[in-house]
Design a protein around this nucleic acid. Structure first.
Length: 155
DNA sequence: GCCAACGTTGGC
DNA sequence: GCCAACGTTGGC
């Protein structure tokens, strides 16, 4: 079993939305490295931290979810009305994949990015490295559990 | 809203 | 295959 961190802008889709929906498609990934993570490494039963990006002081890890469906073609790539539409993708050879996630927990307090940056044990995560743009990244079990611990114990 | 950093595209 | 132009991400 693997562990992940998955980013979403809360103005687009937040942990509150996922809590309401229960299970939802994690669509809109348009980065090949991230697609390959989903295709090659992400599997049903993996756990992921939900991260709010671009959210001012609220930016940070806000909850936990579980992968409940392995990678499959992202339907938004075929939908001309969708902002993630990709004219170069075909049903025969789809470029982009998505997974389904299930809400497990919303933290009472987010573990903020500024808190994460103060901990040297997190310095190796792509999240805090300059210029990194992965919207999904793998985490070690140690890092994953440490983040959950800190989010429940006030940084 | 700004802008640095990065990935992608396409002309050559 | 190079690289300039462009679009996107995401912190601030």
């Amino acid at each position: 079993m693997k562990y992940w961190l998955m980013k979403s802008e809360p103005s687009e889709y937040s942990i509150v939305d996922l809590e309401k929906d229960g299970v939802e498609m994690w669509d809109g990934v348009r980065n090949y490295q991230v697609r390959n993570f989903m295709r090659d490494e992400m599997r049903v039963g993996d756990l992921a931290l939900f991260y709010h990006s671009n959210a001012g002081k609220e930016t940070g890890v806000v909850g936990v979810m579980k992968i409940v469906r392995n990678a499959y073609p992202d339907p938004t790539q075929f939908d001309k009305k969708n902002k993630h539409y990709d004219a170069k993708s075909t049903h025969e050879n789809p470029r982009w994949l998505c997974v389904d996630v299930e809400h497990l927990e919303t933290f009472r307090q987010p573990l903020t990015l500024s808190e994460i940056k103060t901990k040297s044990e997190f310095s190796s995560i792509p999240l805090v490295q300059k210029g990194n743009r992965l919207s999904i990244m793998p985490l070690s079990d140690t890092i994953f559990n440490k983040m959950i611990f800190l989010s429940k114990n006030g940084g």
